[in-house]
């Protein structure tokens, strides 16, 4: 049911041209997927998705829209070539799913290695009831350290791109572009 909603929302995002509406649907999309994660027993993931996808992500996208513009100018018709590529790739992937283990199958390969040990030994070795936390912080501490480093780097990157004063206002820039199309419009230097 929720998965159906999710697909409908995604299709609506493709069809809409008002970017403000697209961003709002993006928030709804995240919230629905958070609901799906709860249904699939991933409470921690659902929590994160609800806070990040429906909160921070929407705010950042809206901030971008405020700095750029709110509608896209692409013509509405379906482009044949990309559609064909997507259709072929999609049918190949659907064909691949017939070899996948069905949902909730306890004999699936994913559940045979490492995970049973975490579930069995985590309470004794780490002593924390939430297995996700113990795997995240203790068994896979290196992994998480790397992830935090990526977040750190992304934050620094955004600061480098947007932290300084902006050189000229957009209007002045457009004026300059009109006067000197070659230099003003094509200038690649920051």
């Amino acid at each position: 049911m929720l998965l159906g909603f999710l697909a409908v929302t995604a299709i609506a995002i493709v069809r809409l041209h008002n970017l403000f509406a697209v961003v709002m649907l993006g928030g709804i999309y995240s919230l629905i997927s958070a609901g799906i994660f709860v249904e699939l027993d991933a409470v921690d993931v659902a929590f994160t998705e609800a806070a990040v996808g429906a909160g921070i992500s929407t705010i950042v996208l809206l901030g971008t829209l405020a700095l750029t513009k709110e509608t896209e100018t692409t013509p509405k018709k379906i482009k044949p070539m990309p559609f064909l590529v997507v259709l072929v790739t999609g049918s190949a992937l659907i064909y691949g799913t017939f070899d996948m283990p069905v949902l909730g199958d306890p004999t699936a390969p994913v559940h045979q290695h490492v995970a049973p040990r975490y579930i069995e030994a985590s309470g004794r070795e780490v002593g924390v009831p939430n297995i996700v936390t113990s795997v995240l912080a203790s068994y896979r501490g290196y992994d998480t350290l790397g992830e935090v480093t990526v977040i750190f780097t992304a934050g620094i990157g955004v600061l480098m791109l947007l932290g300084g004063r902006r050189p000229r206002k957009a209007g002045e820039k457009a004026e300059a572009a009109k006067k000197k199309p070659a230099r003003g419009a094509g200038g690649k230097s920051p």
Partner: peptide, 14 residues
Amino acid sequence: NPLPHVLILTAIVV
């Protein structure tokens, strides 16, 4: 299985 949860939890924030 807690392992996919851990991987995706960090992936969302990243």
